[in-house]
């Protein structure tokens, strides 16, 4: 079931077009990623969905509610984790969480219980009584995420959840996101980490210069770009001398020599290895290893966004 639907959304700040006529939808219970470089319009999009910014045009429907007309109704069922850790510096972790819960009408008892639970879950129990300003960046990020789920929202919007924190904490946060998904929550996150999007998102929209250039699962996005076939050969001696001959005999292949004993054959279609091996054998060059290299999601991303840039 479609829970978030965005149609022809547009945001113009004075004369900067931050979001340019984008449309997408998010299914209930999925992790949906907005992946794009700096300044692509990810935060602007989240801000419009959550009521922090007013769209210049377009339509947003969240859980069947018109989110532009009735944003307060929507805000009751969503949780937001902004790109900056914006809790209250003077207040301690526990009080910060309780305060956030109270903004959603949680009773005193309810919020104290939930705050203690979340501190425990995020390994922050010991720091719970310390002012927020004394937290490290990773701790701040974790508490900010905890604050976003304090009121048990149906949907969670995360703006760059793992930017600026170490690998281990980032991994924990990703685990947490997947756990929330298991509980049936719908999650929309933005990121500029390709790997993060690939690992945790069910579907991804690639956004560049305010426009969504492609949407789909990782597999769909990979398939959408006609990839090159790459073959890596590890050899017993250098083939620098026969590079020209190789290229002449196999005109469909490009030959690259990244280092002395390695050679990359790149072609638009699968490469038949027997003639290559025969030639190398005749030249007395032993072949120790031959491996087909799959294009990474990163290659695909670069291709898709590069394409978009050159179109602009």
């Amino acid at each position: 079931m479609e829970i978030i639907s965005v149609r022809n959304l547009k945001k113009v700040y004075e004369n900067i077009v931050a979001v340019d006529d984008i449309s997408f939808c998010v299914e209930e219970g999925e992790v949906f990623g907005l992946l794009g470089p700096n300044g692509a319009g990810k935060t602007s999009t989240i801000n419009m969905l959550t009521g922090l910014a007013r769209p210049t045009g377009g339509k947003i429907t969240i859980a069947g509610i018109d989110a532009i007309k009735n944003i307060k109704k929507v805000q009751g069922i969503i949780g937001v984790v902004p790109d900056e850790n914006n809790l209250y510096d003077e207040m301690n972790g526990f009080d910060n969480l309780c305060f956030c819960g109270s903004l959603y009408g949680m009773s005193g008892e309810e919020r104290e219980k939930k705050a203690a639970e979340l501190l425990e879950q995020f390994n922050l129990t010991a720091a719970g009584q310390r002012p927020f300003r004394t937290y490290s960046k990773g701790m701040k990020r974790k508490l900010t995420i905890a604050a976003g789920i304090m009121h048990n929202p149906r949907m969670l919007f995360l703006d760059e959840p793992t930017t600026g924190i170490d690998v281990e904490s980032a991994r924990k946060i990703r685990e947490l996101i997947l756990n929330l998904k298991k509980q049936g929550k719908t999650i929309l996150l933005t990121t500029h980490y390709i790997e993060e999007a690939e690992r945790i998102c069910d579907r991804i929209a690639i956004i560049v210069n305010g426009k969504i250039v492609k949407t789909g699962t990782v597999a769909e996005l990979m398939a959408s770009v006609k990839a090159e076939y790459k073959l890596k050969l590890v050899l017993g001696s250098s083939i620098v001398e026969i590079k020209a001959e190789l290229e002449e005999k196999f005109p469909c292949c490009r030959v690259e020599i990244p280092d002395k004993n390695t050679c990359l054959l790149i072609a638009g279609e699968r490469i038949n290895l027997s003639p290559v091996f025969q030639l190398l054998d005749r030249k007395g060059i032993p072949v120790y290893e031959a491996k087909e290299i799959q294009p990474s999601f990163e290659d695909v991303f670069v291709k898709i966004t590069g394409l978009a840039r050159s179109l602009k």
Binding site: T50, G51, L52, K72, K73, Q75, G76, V80, P82, E84, N86, L87, Y88, D89, C100, L103, Y104, G105, A147
Partner: peptide, 14 residues
């Protein structure tokens, strides 16, 4: 400035 005010703007209160 510290953006904590956004929390209040994001809350489901008028």
């Amino acid at each position: 400035r510290s953006r904590s005010f956004d929390r209040l703007l994001l809350a489901p209160i008028s």
